[in-house]
Nucleic acid binder design. Structure first.
Length: 230
DNA sequence: GCGACAG
DNA sequence: ATCTTGTCGC
């Protein structure tokens, strides 16, 4: 069972959530990877509109072949509503439950959302990185904060996202002539490495494989097409 | 005060 | 995020 550090309670109000982010942000470390990763995990949650039940899942793949080597899913309940800037308080609790079911401890974890590309520099990828105490980064489909110049249309090109003069992430083209994805470091990794890993997880789609497979997993779970054991 | 606003 | 069919473009 993969474990994590329970740094704080998740049963908080929006105001307390912001205070926690302000308190935790100083612990985030943006730096090169300590070790070359061999495995990477993708995370996602799904739910039915107007319902409180959430389906969370994590898929672990080998970085060299992109082969799926483990999956874990859980059916839980969201303790927090979706509020821009506070996504982690809605998604991380159930993702931690799925994390506990893993037998493999992924070397790096990709999140569907942002890391430092956040108003307080602590998006879901950074926040989860502190709990998991391992490299994490975000790869979102849209912007929360920050401005950027449109990168060239070919796969691999990117341009920095800036917020109040700081580079907080990158708009990265993962496929020719399709909208970019937004990559930002979460914890224990740097932007350049997060970009390289995103490109390495290419499966021919705009969305990188870890996130894409996690998305498929949780949707299948929600539709009752599979159990949550595997 | 007004508009923006990850999933 | 979710609700949903067809349709425009490479």
């Amino acid at each position: 069972m993969a474990n994590y550090q329970p740094l704080h309670d998740w049963n908080v109000s929006p105001t307390e959530a912001v205070a926690l982010q302000q308190q935790l942000r100083s612990q985030i470390r943006i730096e090169p990877l300590a070790e070359p990763p061999k495995t990477i995990a993708g995370c996602d949650i799904s739910f039915n509109k107007f319902e409180e039940t959430v389906y969370a899942g994590i898929v672990v793949l080998r970085l060299d072949t992109l082969e799926t080597i483990e999956e874990a899913g859980v059916v839980s309940t969201a303790p927090f509503p979706y509020i821009p800037g506070l996504l982690s308080f809605r998604e991380i609790p159930s993702l931690l439950q799925a994390w506990q079911k893993l037998t493999i401890e992924p070397d790096v974890v990709m999140f569907d959302g942002h890391g430092t590309a956040h108003p307080r520099r602590i998006g879901i990828a950074s926040h989860a990185g502190l709990f998991l105490n391992r490299p994490t980064f975000g790869c979102g489909k849209s912007v929360l904060v920050g401005k950027y110049d449109e990168p060239d249309l070919e796969r691999g090109s990117w341009s920095p996202m800036k917020h109040y003069g700081e580079v907080i992430g990158a708009a990265l083209r993962t496929k020719n002539k399709v909208n970019p994805v937004y990559v930002s470091p979460g914890h224990l990794i740097d932007l350049e490495t997060a970009i390289a890993l995103t490109l390495q997880c290419n499966g021919g789609y705009r969305i990188p494989e870890p996130t894409r497979r996690a998305h498929n997993l949780v949707n299948a779970l929600r539709r009752g097409e599979r159990d949550q054991s595997t």
